[in-house]
Design a protein around this nucleic acid. Structure first.
Lengths: 155, 155
DNA sequence: AAAGATTGATGGATCAATCTTA
DNA sequence: TAAGATTGATCCATCAATCTTT
């Protein structure tokens, strides 16, 4: 139960921050170069496609994506404005609503994946061997509080 | 030379993003609860303390911290306003300036570390065994393009 | 022309307050 | 009173343009 981290722990923290920034920057840059929307739009569209025709409630999206409520509210505004999602009234709970992906939303997500997938491969897959990837998954899982494997895919 | 990532690679990417957000949120929250400045101020103060009395040029800070120039310019404004850093004229290059930490800046960095260090230990050190930490350092180093060990400490 | 640095305009993130329904 | 969601105000990040010195 030590209170202060030793040097290796501090190094791991610093590299976690830096690796995320390096990799994220590469990928956001790839999307921007292709004049596609930012990454968070992809995440929303993917969650909504997985949810199917029933869509999702904002609070469900919020928990899945670790976003603040007000943040998500305005993100959905922008995506609705772009025609990629739609808001529907929620039967059975007058406070709530249903967010669903549109045909245009599905289409743009596919276009995004064509850039996003290869960018992930360059930034992550190309830099570690397969057993390194698996070990990394286990270790990062411990930081998140998730089990070692068996999570859903991202495409 | 595959173009598309396989599922384990996509999972690693997703966990890298999520682990960073989870850990960063814990630590920023700890600083905020203690009414201390945000994390990026710590990083600037630490770099400046390491640089000693000569301070650093903004463009040096910029490269070390992966920050955009305009971003850093306004960050320094805020920190100067708070009395934690000072701008000096740069002899030998009339375009530039020197940024140096003040006594108040050194003091607040120490106060921040008293919160920050234990938060790192809780979020990272407490969740992985020592060999897990070392393996994580090696793997994240590959993503950043750094060698396996021998980096400077963070305190 | 290029490097170092700043600034105006704009968009997004955050906090606190608010509104509606459960 | 609490949950779901939105909004006004403010702060920070980003883009493009600018300024000064090399």
């Amino acid at each position: 139960m030590r209170a202060n981290p030793d040097d290796n722990v501090v190094l791991a923290w610093a590299r976690l921050m830096r690796a995320q920034r390096v990799v994220l920057t590469l990928i956001e840059q790839a999307l921007k170069s292709a004049e596609l929307p930012p990454l968070v739009w992809y995440d929303v569209l993917l969650e909504l496609e997985r949810a199917g025709d029933n869509g999702l409630r904002p609070f469900e999206l919020e928990r899945e994506m670790l976003l603040a409520q007000y943040n998500l509210s305005r993100l959905i505004d922008r995506m609705e404005n772009a025609g990629y999602v739609e808001r529907r009234a929620c039967e059975g709970d007058g406070r709530g609503q249903i967010i669903a992906v549109t045909a245009a939303g599905k289409k743009v997500r596919r276009r995004m994946w064509a850039v996003y997938g290869p960018a992930i491969q360059r930034a992550v897959g190309g830099r570690l061997a397969e057993d390194g990837i698996e070990t990394l998954n286990t270790l990062l899982g411990a930081l998140i509080g998730k089990p070692a494997g068996g999570e859903r895919s991202n495409s």
